[in-house]
Simulated scan of single mutants.
Amino acid sequence: MKKLSALIAAIMMAFMLAGCSLFSEEQPQGTQFDAKIGILLSDTGLGDGSFNDAAFQGLERARTDLNIVFDYREAPEGNYEEMLNELVEQDMTLIIGLGFSVQEAIEKVALENPEQQFLLIDGYSEVANVVSVTFKEQEGSFLVGVVAALTSESGVIGFIGGVDAPVIHRFEQGYIAGAKFANPTITVLSNYAGDFGDTALGGNIAQQQIDQNADFIYPAAGYTGVGAILKAQEHGVFAAGVDSDQFFIAEEAVVTSMLKKIDVVVYDLVSSLVQGNIDEAAFELGLAEDGVGLAEIRLAQLDATGQALLQDVQKKIISGEIVVPETKE
């Protein structure tokens, strides 16, 4: 995959504030596009500073660089099929579904519309007209675990998952494995919120972990995780962001973030589609493919030994010498 490029998030916000449409009314009459892209965002929608925003930025970049137009839908009520069918009716070249929660709906709609090409991000489908993209979240989370263990003074760190699902298990298990690799005596507290959209709940769970001496908290929980990060900042403890660089959320707490390079994936696949076809039916992206990674480390300084350890484990994961667990034992 192509290396991550710097994207300007302010473009998206300015566009949203201006109330502009993303589709044809903004284009000159008769404009011809190489591709028309539709996207159904995951539950938390735009403005999450993470998963959805990253995918949106990838499409914005594609719109700037390539001859494409795109439209999007949000489904906070869980009406995925309805939103997908609205996009199908617009005769899209490609329709993207974000998140494992949309998989059942996208497969149903794909089977009903076999000529329509779909892309499922964060799930694996065997339906013929659905291309699947999954990430090795455990590999990027392993690096976060190493950083957490090296910066923790209490010897206790925390993980907060959004829902009890395989994709979140990968975050959790990678984080635990990395932390214990760096410090075998580290204690890792782990809680599941059961919700991606409750900032107050995230703050409450973080408070419980802080009360148990956790001084580094890693949430993989959408808006719920934002609440946890803000609570960490309130108490002067460290945190890690997820999916995108979330340093801006809490600049006194976020040491680093596990990058899930959805923006790059979306851009590259749209680019491939414009140039020809997406030949592969499924992509699984980890450190070796530059699909996941670690944001800049701020606030906490790793000593030379810690920096060397972090670089060494990354090389060993890429080479296969370290195989990071992705499921609970």
Rank of each mutant, 00 (worst) to 15 (best):
A10P: 00
A10E: 13
M12N: 14
F15G: 08
F15I: 00
P28T: 08
P28W: 07
P28N: 11
L40Y: 02
S42W: 12
D48N: 00
S50I: 08
F51A: 03
D53V: 04
G58P: 00
E60D: 07
A62P: 00
N67R: 00
N67V: 04
A75R: 06
P76A: 11
P76E: 10
E77K: 14
N79F: 00
Y80L: 05
I95T: 03
I96W: 09
E107F: 10
L111H: 10
N113C: 11
P114I: 12
E115Q: 11
Q116D: 05
Q117P: 06
L119Q: 07
L119E: 02
L119I: 12
L120N: 08
L120F: 02
I121W: 08
D122W: 05
Y124S: 12
S125L: 05
V133L: 04
G158D: 03
A165V: 13
G174D: 03
Y175H: 06
G178F: 01
F181N: 06
N183S: 14
P184V: 04
T185G: 08
I186E: 08
V188R: 02
T199N: 13
T199Y: 09
N204F: 09
A206L: 06
Q209L: 10
A214S: 14
F216I: 07
P219V: 07
G222H: 09
V226K: 12
Q233V: 07
V237A: 13
D245L: 11
Q246C: 08
I249L: 15
A250H: 11
A253I: 12
V254N: 05
V254Y: 04
S272Q: 15
S272G: 09
N277H: 03
D279Q: 15
A281R: 10
F283P: 01
L285T: 06
L285A: 10
G286V: 15
E289W: 02
E289Q: 12
E289A: 01
I297P: 14
R298F: 04
L299Y: 09
T305G: 14
Q311L: 15
G320Y: 01
E329Q: 09
E329P: 15
